[in-house]
């Protein structure tokens, strides 16, 4: 089974040279720490920066330089700042190649819910609805089950939706899955030490299993 860092490391393997990438808050943010050697990636944060760098050293933090999670950050050489309309032109216009975000629920047709629990939690959607409606390639990073142990991979989402039929791939602590429209979650890889039966038991939606399912590989960092 993977921890949050393991999920981030596995998603980092999906990054390709030359990608502009938007990372959501939580596990997705960690992906930036595991970019494979030898490829060039630029991170976009939708509040208005391309070329986002790591957190600043103490004393170097700038209140005018934050990411979409409101965290203090730095800007790499070649970075650029822009307004929110330009930022979402990059997103809506599909200039960003990959979006990684968290979710509370995903359904087997690729619907995602991550912004509201009626009567309990209302934080707002922020940029998530714009991102999921337009991104060509969306990976969801999340735990397979919620704190109560209930599956987050469902036939139908029970919470208010963020977007419909948009999620392409899901990486959880148990597995990597692809959403096959009108069919279900196709199991691609198992997390180390996790059996197909365990993944099946933790998945409420239709899990498609086709032959031997390989275990995830993590190349040693050089």
């Amino acid at each position: 089974m993977l921890d949050k860092i393991g999920i981030a490391k596995r998603i980092a393997q999906e990054l390709k040279d030359g990608f502009y990438v938007n990372l959501g808050i939580g596990i997705p943010t960690l992906v930036a720490n595991y970019v494979p050697k030898g490829i060039s990636i630029e991170f976009q944060s939708e509040n208005g920066i391309l070329g986002m760098g790591p957190f600043p050293f103490e004393g170097m933090e700038d209140p005018d330089l934050i990411n979409a999670g409101k965290q203090t950050i730095t800007a790499l050489d070649g970075a650029v700042y822009f307004d929110s309309a330009t930022s979402f032109a990059m997103i809506r216009g599909q200039h960003v190649q990959l979006t990684v975000l968290g979710a509370m629920e995903v359904s087997e047709n690729g619907d995602i819910a991550n912004w509201k629990i009626p009567g309990k939690m209302v934080k707002g959607m922020g940029g998530a609805m714009d991102l999921v409606a337009s991104a060509e390639n969306i990976i969801v990073a999340m735990m397979h089950t919620n704190k109560k142990g209930h599956s987050k991979l469902l036939k139908n989402c029970s919470l208010p939706l963020t977007g419909v039929a948009c999620v392409k791939k899901i990486v959880t602590n148990l597995a990597v899955m692809e959403v096959i429209p009108d069919e279900g979650f196709k199991l691609i890889e198992r997390a180390p030490g996790v059996t197909v039966q365990e993944i099946q038991a933790a998945t409420e939606g239709c899990l498609l299993i086709d032959g031997e399912v390989p275990e995830m590989q993590f190349a040693p960092r050089v």
């Binding site: 939708e46 307004d83 929110s84 309309a85 930022s87 979402f88 997103i91 809506r92 619907d111 209302v122 707002g124 959607m125 922020g126 940029g127 998530a128 609805m129 714009d130 409606a133 337009s134 208010p160 939706l161 963020t162 977007g163 419909v164 039929a165």
Partner: peptide, 30 residues
């Protein structure tokens, strides 16, 4: 509550004399 990109564009449209626009953000949601 409205999607962030729609909020930005609705303000921009307001200032630019564009009364309304179509966006994919939020389709199929509340």
């Amino acid at each position: 509550l409205i999607p962030q990109g729609s909020l930005a564009e609705r303000c921009r449209a307001g200032g630019a004399g564009i009364p309304a626009f179509f966006t994919p953000a939020g389709f199929g949601t509340e």
